[in-house]
Structures are given as C-alpha cells and as structure tokens.
Amino acid sequence: MLQNTKSDYQIAQQQILEGIVSGEFEIENRKDLGPLIPIRLFQALRMVALGSNVEDILGQGAPSLVYHSGQSLGLAMGKIAAANIDKDLETYVGKIKMLCRQLSIGLVVPDRVDLNAGVLELRVDECVSCAGIHNVSAPICHFEAGMVGGIVKTFFNRNVKATETKCNALGDKTCLIRVDLM
C-alpha cells in the first residue's frame, strides 16, 4: 500500500523552496554566519556529494540523478516565474534571470530562441557549479542543464531535452545549454 507521508528530505525540500519563493534570504540559526556560504563549499556538495560520491555508487546513473535533481529545482523556479505573467516569454525569461542572479546560480543569457525549430540555447555565465574548475573531458554541469530544462518545460508545458554543449570547465568561458522542445 502506498504511504502518503513525506520523507524528511521532502519536508526539508519544501521549506527550502518556500524560502526561495518568499525571496527572503535571511535564515534562522545563522545569526553570526549569515545566509551566504563560500562557493567552494557549494561546489564540494555539488561535485563531491552529488558528483564523485554518487558516481561511485551509481556509475553511469549519476548524471541522470544530477540532471533530475536540477530539473526539480528548475520546475520549482519555473512555477515562481510563471505566476502572474500571462504566458509572456520575455517577462518569464527576465524573472528567471533575476532569480538565478539572486541565488548566485549564474548569469543567464538567452543566446538563441528559435521556436519554429523548437530549439532554445541559454548561456549560464559565471556558473556556480564549474567556476574555477578546469581540464575536464566533458561538460559537468548536469545540474544546471536539468534546471534550465525544468524552467523551459514549465513555461511551454512540453517535454524538453536539455544538453550542456559548452562548459566553462572545458575552457569554453561559459556554459551553454541547448534545449530541444519535444
């Protein structure tokens, strides 16, 4: 029989997302240290806890998990941005850009929008996950790809496939995420 109770991670997730939605960045129990953390700590969580450690256990399944996690965040961000904008793409992108800047995820810039071809390309400059990381052999920002995929999916209400085609960690100076509308 299916249980309808939330796990502790789901409870924490809800509180974190509600905090993002509220736009309130102050946080309790951090009176001296405040709400901000060093980027290297985030990268340790992203590339170690949600990267190499997950890869040790899941092997080729690791990028899927990371992409799916990013997509969950993107869907939540999309819901925030889609509220009260009457399906206006420009306003939506503007709100997403602002949200990504507020959260220090990166500077999101639409590079190409071809709705006839069903393709969007978004740049993430100063990407939080791979800033200061070099010499990798393939794009590593699966989380951001999933996040962008979730954001686009929310607006168009269609299945999408997001792929990181350029990555700062590859020496590309930016992360470029291509989204195909299915």
Binding site: L58, G59, Q60, G61, S64, H68
Partner: peptide, 11 residues
C-alpha cells in the same frame, strides 16, 4: 532517471 540510476547501481 530511475532506470538509469538502477542500471548504474546494479553495474
């Protein structure tokens, strides 16, 4: 995502 994760973990 689940299929990839299960396959990866099994491998």
């Amino acid at each position: 995502a689940s299929v990839q994760v299960v396959f990866g973990a099994a491998a």
